[in-house]
Amino acid sequence: MQLIDVNVWLDYPLPGYEAEGGPAAERLRQLAAMGIIECWAGSFAALFAPDPEPANRELIATCAGWQRPRVRPAVTVNPTLPELDRRFADLARAGVRIVRLYPPAHGYDLADEPFWQAVTLAAKQRMVVQVVCSVEDRRTQPPSVNWPLVDPTPLKAAAARLAAPVVLLNCPARRYGDLLPGVRNVFVDTAMQEGAGVLARLIEQIGATRLLFGSYSPVFYTASNLLKLIESPLPERHLRAIAYHNARRLLQSQ
């Protein structure tokens, strides 16, 4: 079975974390050996830079060199910076389809206008928006990146404005009860979903079309999320949806 991994980071480490898994090229080859034919890859350097553009350009160039797996750049956008229109237009010209937002790093939340501007511009440029909801459980985060969990509930109040698909990465979805089934255009990845048999239980709660395979590699062991696909007894159609089709459809729908 082929997989698309929507939550990969190319450069590493995060401040306060050790570099694991070797250089990016080695890690990407390992992902390919596990059946991952495509990954959506971000850059921590871009996330932490005062202006993400130089690191984004480097990310786009690196991704272009990969076929097995295919690597799509998930470029960092800081919507509090000036010239947001121009930035999105440049990214679109470079062929970018995925933007990655990290609200606590850039000082806004999902109720704030910068986020909605980013969603509107992403929709205009036929892009998917990813929101990184957390780096790690706050109880174990090193002080260097001890950020709060992004609260996704404002998406519900402004559901009509969700013009682009929004994928919540590293979001413990079971905490947000009815958010996902209730709001169109919101998706989550598997990376931080917890509980025995978690995928089957989550599908009961939010349906199989909202869930995308994400490993959060190399911060997390990739094996952890691959094994979730085995832990729950899932019908083949649900497994394929999570592993591949939902991500494919997101890009096609835009």
């Binding site: 979903q193 509980g195 025995a196 094996a223 952890s224 691959l226 094994l227």
Partner: peptide, 19 residues
């Protein structure tokens, strides 16, 4: 693992994924 609160998979992956 700390299942049922945790996923068997997420925790087992720590060992299977280790170098």
């Amino acid at each position: 693992s700390d299942a049922g609160g945790r996923s068997f998979a997420s925790q087992l992956g720590k060992v299977y994924g280790a170098r």
